[in-house]
Each structure stands twice: as structure tokens, then as C-alpha cells.
Nucleic acid binder design. Structure first.
Length: 906
RNA sequence: GGGCGAAUAGCUCAGUUGGUUAGAGCGCCUGCCUUACAAGCAGGAGGUCGCAGGUUCAAGUCCUGCUUCGCCCACCA
């Protein structure tokens, strides 16, 4: 028999199997295979840096599902890919260049893009390494990058089609502008940050003299661009102010008083300064009232020439100077502290500047309508469900999407402008000449598309769309999307819309939203905050299996995880336990008398047609268990538990309860298999012969099955142990598992075994209470009451009670007498006496039993009260009443028993 | 302003459609190096389930209100 190293060394094992899986192409898709497809697309990680613990969580969930489905016989495609992440990458590359004293503009577009590609290669490799270390069973042979030619073509195709449909348009409009990145961004990329600021009250005198209106503003510097002052039409002052003009301070500009519903009469003075050039609300007011915007801040956030003496000042400095100037003229009336939210660019944290510019937009309403329908009909289901509502409310209030970015790194907008006739040409491929004037002076639009404009096609663009490929036919729609709740708007919703529009079907039927991984302070783990440990480091310390198991165990659906590396101890301990259990089972010196697992000439694997451990052994190892074996009750018991737990596990995975799934595995393996079964099997081993062979066969069959069931969560350690258990069976990662036969279930045996365990625990408890040395053998008497047939039920457990409770002389009898000088425990149906040969401290014993009695009496009274309540008996379902009656009988038995024991003590 | 989530043992968290004596891991206490595992084994202590009402035979679980923390959305001048 091969042997496992004494000390579990995850790092070495994991490295080894990563290589083996890759070399044997275990995860490479056979697109021709006849099995039912199961598809997951990996949310393509950004190439800006390395993965976080959050990625590790999502990756583990996906890998678990893929490995599970693969074992269940599905043809699994887990599609690998990465995202060019336009702004984020351009930003980091720019910064890296700047560190070398090189500016992007000096370098030029072409050279800069080369730098981006170099960056991509470097971080791509790093991410591949991280995913590999996690054990991700991705099909790398089909890896796609969002800027790959095929995908790019799909992006252009989509642009052209949507433009042709009239859904993409170009317009001068007020957009969210990031003065630091120098580009427009979408509404979704703006984070609002609660800020304490000031509300400044500024007086605008009437042009004709004789009074003033006071406006409230948080951004006094924009007053230079004011074109009106607005009031609510229902304002009491409205009549008197109709048609009045004001003189805009510092500029002398004459601006009108206007009336608009958008003004909240209760806010501030009820007068709103209207600055269409620098505020989205004001922009709309401006449109409604045909007021031309006055732009005073440029694309870098500096005051422009329009502002006279303020020109060239940064917007922050300008605020100070404008305030000072107003103060000087006595027009600054009041300054209040004021809490409000200010929009910041989610990538760089710079305060957003609303800015009027010419951009490309996508009309969303028509695209959203079918996306709303499919969610309402349940064709796309969110898990946990509440995310569905968040999706719907966003979709129902969707706004047009600004898709152009003033960047270099990304998909160039497929639009050309004719230098001769100014025609706009929208085309998938570079046009040779202007279709209108035949001119050849064509210039492509300088801008690129929002990164999400390529990601939203991700369920189908990597599979060859717009061609009608076999892959698309087989693997689209995908099965499940696993991602975080924070990108439902960015990505999930848009994928649903894109797929419905271009594929005519949903992109996936289930969206599983993972919790967000936070640090112990509750902050989201992110690259920019730098508060996420590198998964590679954790894996280096504890192994990927321990890390994965912990992540699964700690992540109830929809709940954020407060992650701290010490939590990985749970998984670390568990992995160690598995390792040692396997070492024990493999190290048993038993001649099994059967062919080596999977050996040529061994009998073919029969369908497991009975609950016998031998059948399970044959089925998973593919070789007969050999002649002359005998099984004990504990062998059948662990088989029954295995079957039950395997069924539970499947249910939990199917309902995405990975926390429950992990707990099921943990409890079964540790507590049932190790604590009880393996301990029990030692008795059989000692006995030798057929019984020892039976125990060994069972121990191996259950260990092997456990490796199969644990494999999706802990792929490496299970693979290693599997290779020892069944060296010729091939890799576990490629193993097809039919399941544990239901015939293994034996409810009656399980109930009896539970009784057995209760007795063992009670004796152990007694021993400990009276400080009997752990190794010392004692005699014990079990009094079973009269005529309930309990001694017969307990008969087969005698030997094992002796072994596990260290009892060398056991009497089990109806109405057995309590030996003098013994201590006792009352269970629900039996009494246990341990004669202690005079070492008992009666007072201690009395105290202990007194506590027990008090407790059981309280419980008993509670149930009694319930049963005496006529309304309960009348209204509760009969099975509940029945159950309560049984409970009462059991408890009062126990109570009386304890009371009597106590009495005997005097 | 609107919506959502959380509050259970010292700590981190489970607790599925209301129905046994509310569980686990860590930590703590006691005893064990019992030849698979001290990252372990055996035993144990520890909880008025955030607060106040309500529905019900029965509430940690359902309803209402409140408190604290967190998140999301909104043209918060």
C-alpha cells in the first residue's frame, strides 16, 4: 500500500496536481461530447493587478459548481477570460510611466498602447497563476481577452446594429466628467460620498435696483456661469417677480428670474441659481427655458477664459477667490454648515465635474423592457432573491448610457468622419472611402468605448458571435452567473439586455450573488484600498483547500463576510483531519484479498445494486472487494450515514447553500466517520479475519466516497488521497460519480446507533465526573426497565460499548439492580450504574444529580403545561401533539429515574 | 427622501416553510501524548435570541413600532 507523508504539506501537493491537471487537459472541453452542457463564464478579472479574497470567493463558488457538475456527468465549459479594464488600466500604466518621467502625451497613442499591452501580459500571467493556485478548473484553451480580434469585431458589430436601429446616438449633453482622468464616465461609475460642506447664501441684486434675491449654493464658483435664477411656480413671490431681471455679481451679466417645477420652494431661500453648464439639474432647466449654457470650467477642472480674472484657477482655488470677492462686495449673506453627497469617480476618487461635451449614448429603455420581462417571468432568477428587486428597480428607471470614453486603451469607436463632406460613417470594418462623396480623407473617432460595452457581450462574444457557431448552439445560454452584487448594474443587467437583443435568449438562467468580502473594519476588500491579503500568500501558508473550504463555510448566501486570515484555521484543521484519517485507513495492515483498485483484469465496476459496503467499494474503485469478508453493524451504519449526507450535500449545492454543504461534509467526515466509525472499526481490526477485512473495505469505500464528495470544495487533498486509494483509477478531477445508492439507508439502524452513542457518552460523562483515569477499565450495569426488549436491542453494541467507554464488565438487563456504592446516570430509557468501589464522594454526586433533576423537571413542567392546555391539544396538528406526548413520557421517565437515584443516596 | 440587510454564547457566525431541551468553530475550564491526527481526543461551563407591543395552541422564526450598525438608490441647490 502506498503511504501518505506523515505531515500534510499542502503547498507541494497542490503544485503537483495543478501541473498534472494541466498536462492531462482534464478541464479542456470536448465540444463534441454528448453530455448535457453546463456553462459558466468567469467574470473576467481586470488586468490592472492581482486578485483579492473577494475574487477567491467567487472563483471557489464557480469551481465548486463546475467540478460538481463534471462529476455528475455534465459537459462543463468554464470559460476563462480577462478584461482590458479601460480606465483602470490606462490609469495604472500612465502612473507607471510617470514614475519613469514619461508622460502619456509625449509618448503618443501608438507607443502608449504598446505599454498597455506589455502591462497586460505581465498581470495576465499573475492572474493565471493565482487562479491556478486556487485550483480553478478553467478551460484555458479557450481563454479570451476583451480586446481579442474576434471579440472586438463583435463589439463593432453590436455598435453598428444598435446605431442602425437608432438606439445609439451622438449628442452634446451634460455628462459626468472626471477632470483627473480627462474622460466622461457613466452614471454607474459615480460614487456618492457623504461630505460636510457649506451652503453659501449669495445676494443677486435686481437689475433695476431696489432689492435682491438670495440664492443658496454649495458651489459658489459656478455662479460665474449662471444664466438665471429659478423659483417654484407656486412660490408666493412668483407674481411679483415675473419678468424681473437680476444682475449677476462679479460679471455684470443680466439674467432673468424664471419659474420651474424642479425647484423645491422649501429649500434654502427657495431661489435656485441656474448653471446649465455645470449642473445636471440646471442643464435640464436650461433646456426647458431655452437658456444657453455658459461654460466656466474646462475639462481639467480649471476656470476658463470666460471667467475673466479667475481664469486659469483650479476650481477649488476659484471657490475661495469668488467667495472673497463676494464678501468684499457685501453680497455673501450667510454660510451654513451643510451635509451632502458629492459624486466621485469610482476609479480615482476625484470629484466629478458635470461637463457639457459631445458623446455617444445608448438609448436603454427599449433594450430594458425585455430584460424586465424575463426577470419577472423568472427566466432569469437571482439568488438570493432580493437582488432581483434591485435589478428590477434599476431597469425600470434606466437612463441612457454614455458609452464613449476619452481614452486610448479600449475598443476604438467604429465611426469615421469624412474630411471632405463631413459625412459620419458607422461601419464594422475600416471604410476605404466616403460612401457619400468618395473622399478618402477619413478620420476615425478618437474615442474608445466604455469597457462594459465589450463585457456586456461576454456570454456570447467569446463563442464566435455573430457567426452561428456550434459552441453558441451548445453552450448558450450559460447556466449560472456567479458575481458580486456591486456589479449588477454594470454588468449583469447589461448582459441580460445584450443577450436578449442579439441572441434572442437570456444569457443565463440563474444569477448567484456572492457576499462582499470585507476586512475586520467592515471595509470592502479592494486593490485600491490595499486591504486584501493576496490569496497566493494565504494559500502559501495554509493551502488552497483550507482557504476554499473556509470561504465556503463562512459564506451564507447574500451575507457579506468579515474576513480575517485566522478564520482559515477551520479549513486548515479540517484538511489536517482528512489527511490523518486517510493516513490511518491506508496504513491499516490488512490483507484485503482483493485485486488492486482498478487493476487490469479486475472485475468491471458493477452498478451499486445494494447497500453493501462491498458494492460501494467495487463501484468506486472498480475492483471486487474480495472473498471472505464480514460486515458489522457499524459498517452498515456508516454507509447509511454516508448515503444520507451525500443526498443532503446534493440538495445544498443545487440550492447554492455552500455553507450548508460544507457543514454537512465537515460533520459527516469529522464526527461521524472519524469520531465514531473509525474508532469503532478498531475493534473489528483487532478481531482480525473476515471482520477486519470488512472494516477495511468499508473504511476505504467511505473514505473514497468522501474524497469524491469533498473534491469540489477541496480538490487537491482529495486528489492526492484518491491517488493513493485508487492509483489506477485516473484523476479524481475527471471522475464521474453515479452517487451513493439509496439502499444504503437504514433508518432503524441509525436510531439504534444513536442510542448506543448516547450510552457511550453517558458513561464517559460519569467517568470524567468522578475522575476515573481515561485508561482505567470499569464495570458497568445498564438497567433497561421492564419488558421493553431493550437488552436485545443493545446486544450487538456490547463489544463496542466496552471499547469506546472503556468498560471491561458490562451487565445489560431488565430491572438490573444498582450495585452498592455505584454512581448512576439516567437516560431517557435506561439507567446506567458504575460501581466505583468506594471512591465516590456522595456530596459531589448529590449535587450533580440535583442539577440534572432540576433541569429535567423544568423541561418536564413546560411540556406538561403544554399538554394540559386544552387549546393546544385541540388546535395543534395531531402529530405535534403525539410528539409532545412521547417527549413527556420520555422526560418524566428520566425525571423519575434521576429522582430515585438521588433518593437512594440518602 | 426611498429601499434593503444585519443585531443569537466572550469572539465570528448557522438556525430552510412557526413545532423536541437554540447549534458550530474559535476562545475558556477539566482530564488525557488512548501508535491517524495536540492543527488532536474525551468531558464541561457559557445564551432573558437588540427593545416594546401584537398575531398564534405555539414565535429566535410571522406582523407593527423603535434603537444601533452597514449598504444601495435619488436632478440633497
Amino acid at each position: 500500500m502506498p503511504e501518505l507523508e506523515k505531515v500534510y504539506n499542502p503547498v507541494e501537493i497542490e503544485k503537483k496536481w495543478t501541473v498534472v491537471w494541466r498536462e492531462r487537459k482534464v478541464f479542456t472541453l470536448d465540444a463534441q461530447a454528448a453530455e448535457t452542457p453546463f456553462t459558466i463564464i468567469l467574470p473576467p478579472p481586470n488586468i490592472t493587478g492581482s486578485l483579492t479574497v473577494g475574487h477567491a470567493l467567487g472563483t471557489t463558488v464557480q469551481d465548486l459548481l463546475c467540478r460538481w457538475k463534471r462529476m455528475k456527468g455534465f459537459n462543463v465549459l468554464w470559460l476563462a477570460g480577462m478584461d482590458h479594464a479601460g480606465i483602470a488600466t490606462q490609469k495604472v500604466v500612465e502612473r507607471a510611466l510617470l514614475d519613469q518621467g514619461i508622460s502619456k502625451d509625449a509618448l503618443g497613442r501608438e507607443k502608449f498602447l504598446e505599454e498597455c499591452w506589455r502591462w497586460k501580459e505581465k498581470y495576465h500571467d499573475r492572474i493565471v497563476e493565482q487562479l491556478g493556485a486556487l485550483g480553478a478548473s478553467l478551460d484555458w484553451s479557450r481563454e479570451t481577452f476583451t480586446l481579442d480580434p474576434g471579440v472586438s469585431r463583435a463589439v463593432r458589430e453590436v455598435f453598428v446594429r444598435l446605431h442602425r436601429k437608432g438606439l445609439i446616438y451622438r449628442d452634446r449633453y451634460i455628462v459626468n466628467w472626471c477632470p483627473s482622468c480627462g474622460t466622461a464616465i457613466s452614471d454607474e461609475e459615480v460614487d456618492f460620498v457623504e461630505t460636510h460642506g457649506k451652503l453659501y447664501y449669495i445676494a443677486y441684486p435686481f437689475a433695476e435696483g431696489g432689492g435682491e434675491l438670495v440664492v443658496g449654493t454649495t458651489r459658489p464658483e459656478t455662479m460665474l456661469g449662471d444664466v438665471a435664477v429659478a423659483m417654484h411656480p407656486g412660490d408666493k413671490r412668483a407674481g411679483a417677480l415675473e419678468g424681473k431681471m437680476l444682475e449677476l455679481p462679479l460679471t455684470g451679466r443680466i439674467i432673468p428670474v424664471i419659474f420651474d417645477e424642479a425647484v423645491d420652494p422649501a429649500f434654502g431661500t427657495g431661489c435656485l441659481k441656474v448653471t446649465p453648464g455645470h449642473d445636471a439639474t440646471d442643464f435640464l432647466i436650461g433646456l426647458r427655458h431655452r437658456l444657453d449654457p455658459v461654460v466656466v470650467i474646462d475639462r481639467e477642472g480649471k476656470m476658463n477664459a470666460e471667467t475673466g480674472r479667475f481664469a486659469g484657477l483650479d476650481r477649488r482655488e476659484a471657490r475661495k477667490q469668488v467667495l472673497a470677492a463676494l464678501e468684499e462686495q457685501g453680497l455673501l449673506r450667510k454660510v451654513d454648515d451643510y451635509e451632502h453627497s458629492i459624486g466621485h469617480h469610482d476609479r480615482c476618487g476625484t470629484a466629478i465635474e458635470p461637463y457639457i461635451s459631445r458623446q455617444w449614448f445608448l438609448r436603454m429603455k427599449t433594450l430594458a423592457a425585455p430584460g424586465i420581462e424575463v426577470a419577472k417571468r423568472g427566466e432569469v432568477a437571482f439568488t438570493p432573491e432580493r437582488w432581483g428587486n434591485i435589478y428590477l428597480s434599476w431597469m425600470e428607471n434606466i437612463r441612457d448610457w454614455c458609452i464613449s470614453r476619452q481614452l486610448w486603451w479600449g475598443h476604438r469607436i467604429p465611426v469615421w468622419y469624412c474630411g471632405d463632406c463631413e459625412e459620419t460613417i458607422v461601419a464594422v470594418d475600416v471604410p476605404a472611402s466616403c460612401p457619400k462623396c468618395r473622399g478618402t480623407k477619413l478620420a476615425q473617432d478618437e474615442d474608445v468605448l466604455d469597457t462594459w460595452f465589450s463585457s456586456w457581450l461576454w456570454t456570447f462574444s467569446p463563442m464566435g458571435w455573430p457567426e452561428k457557431t456550434k459552441d453558441l448552439e451548445a453552450f448558450h445560454p450559460t447556466s449560472v452567473l456567479v458575481t458580486g452584487g456591486d456589479i449588477i448594474f454594470f454588468w449583469v443587467a447589461r448582459m441580460i439586455m445584450a443577450s436578449l437583443e442579439f441572441m434572442g435568449e437570456v444569457p443565463f438562467s440563474t444569477v448567484y450573488i456572492t457576499g462582499i468580502v470585507r476586512d475586520t473594519k467592515g471595509r470592502k476588500m479592494s486593490k485600491s484600498l490595499g486591504n486584501s491579503p493576496d490569496p497566493i500568500d494565504i494559500i502559501g501558508r495554509t493551502g488552497a483547500d483550507a482557504f476554499r473550504f473556509t470561504l465556503m463555510m463562512l459564506s451564507p448566501p447574500g451575507q457579506d463576510i468579515m474576513f480575517d486570515e485566522s478564520k482559515v484555521d477551520v479549513g486548515k484543521h479540517f484538511a489536517n483531519k482528512i489527511w490523518n484519517a486517510a493516513r490511518f485507513v491506508l496504513g491499516q495492515e490488512v490483507e484485503l484479498g482483493c485485486a488492486e483498485a482498478g487493476a487490469p483484469g479486475a472485475s468491471p465496476a458493477p452498478a451499486p445494486d445494494s447497500g453493501s459496503p462491498a458494492r460501494l467499494y467495487e463501484s468506486i474503485f472498480g475492483s471486487a472487494a474480495g472473498p471472505d469478508i464480514e460486515f458489522g453493524w457499524e459498517d452498515r451504519w456508516i454507509m447509511s450515514r454516508l448515503a444520507r449526507r451525500a443526498a443532503e450535500l446534493g440538495g445544498h449545492i443545487d440550492t447554492y447553500r455552500f455553507d450548508e454543504a460544507s457543514r454537512t461534509l465537515y460533520d459527516f467526515f469529522w464526527h461521524e466517520y472519524c469520531d465514531w466509525y473509525l474508532e469503532l472499526s478498531k475493534a473489528a481490526a483487532r478481531q482480525g479475519g473476515a471482520r477486519a477485512r470488512g472494516a477495511a473495505v468499508t473504511a476505504r469505500a467511505v473514505l473514497g466516497t468522501s474524497m469524491i464528495l469533498l473534491h469540489p470544495t477541496m480538490p487537491f487533498i482529495t486528489e492526492e488521497i484518491w491517488s493513493m486509494l485508487a492509483p489506477r483509477r485516473g484523476v479524481l478531477a475527471g471522475y464521474r460519480f453515479p452517487g451513493v445508492p439509496e439502499r444504503c439507508l437504514d433508518e432503524e439502524l441509525e436510531a439504534d446507533a444513536a442510542f448506543f452513542m448516547e450510552i457511550v457518552s453517558a458513561i464517559r460523562n460519569l467517568r470524567q465526573s468522578f475522575n476515573i483515569p481515561p485508561g482505567k477499565l470499569v464495570s458497568a450495569v445498564i438497567n433497561c426497565g421492564k419488558g421493553r426488549g431493550i437488552p436485545a436491542r443493545l446486544d450487538r453494541f456490547r463489544e463496542q460499548i466496552g471499547l469506546l467507554a472503556k468498560v471491561d464488565d458490562l451487565v445489560v438487563a431488565d430491572g438490573a439492580a444498582k450495585p452498592p456504592g455505584s454512581v448512576a446516570a439516567g437516560l431517557s430509557s435506561v439507567e446506567i450504574y458504575l460501581p466505583l468501589r468506594g471512591v465516590v464522594d456522595i456530596e459531589v454526586e448529590k449535587k450533580r444529580l440535583g442539577r440534572d433533576l432540576e433541569k429535567i423537571t423544568r423541561e418536564c413542567e413546560k411540556v406538561e403545561g403544554r399538554l394540559k392546555d386544552a387549546r393546544f391539544v385541540e388546535k395543534a396538528p395531531s402529530d405535534v401533539v403525539e410528539q409532545e406526548k412521547n417527549r413527556y413520557n420520555e422526560m418524566s421517565d428520566k425525571k423519575q429515574r434521576i429522582a430515585r437515584i438521588l433518593e437512594d443516596l440518602g
